[in-house]
Amino acid sequence: MSILEVDNLSVSFKQYTSGLRQHTQEVISNLSMELVSGEILAVVGASGSGKSLLAHAILGILPSNAQTSGKIRFDGEVLTTKLQEQLRGKEIALVPQSVSFLDPLMRVGAQVRTSVRKGKAKEAQKKVFERYHLKEEVENMYPFQLSGGMARRILVSTAMVSGARVIIADEPTPGLDSVVIKEALTNFREFADQGCAVMLISHDIESALQVADKVAVFYGGTVLEIAPAENFEGNGDRLQHHYSKALWRALPQNDFTCEFKN
């Protein structure tokens, strides 16, 4: 069952180039995709290609000079700015990429507690800490005192306690060692298995494939193709788009050859 549908979404920015000349730059164009409950959709593409903006557009937290067109539907209902405000943090949760997304002067326990929408915040926070093997003392720590893995678990905790049905994870694995990456990905798989729809934004196609059900290949501001994860195998012959194939083959273990032209 599809929870979130993105239909023909475009995002552009107004910029002043030289003097007062206005210039509109389109960052995302005609993008369509859907998130299904119980599934992980990985959105893969090069760094800096506007994948994060997709997440921000769904949540409605783009900068004020951004313009969007197209429709996003949640549970069949068109997302208006007002509805986005209501759903943010309650039905749609963001898992950001690094510790810099935590308030540096607030104890992490308190930050997790502010994400709780239903029931007792303190209990929910204690439970989620236990579940992610965070010691009780971590609750009173400040973000700068966390290790990379702990920060990850705290960030995932905020989404966990919110009770949201759509989880958007924005580059959740960069700069982490493989053990922590594995753990983070397992967490997202658990979300999906509980019935959440997960959007996993990543430039790391290899690790995304470990848990994703479908993969959307993002390039030039739009999704080129959405393929089931199992199509990414062998030489990538089952992929339709040549960019997807190239992306897949560019991995070192997949027949990647460096051509020298002398």
């Binding site: 921000h56 949540l59 937290i61 405000e85 209501q86 943010r88 943090g89 309650k90 949760a93 963001l94 950001p96 810099s100 997304f101 935590l102 308030d103 540096p104 502010t114 994400s115 929408r117 905020t158 919110s162």
Partner: peptide
């Protein structure tokens, strides 16, 4: 962190 706070509603 304010972007994230806004994302949390």
């Amino acid at each position: 962190y304010v972007v994230f706070a806004r994302a949390r509603g």
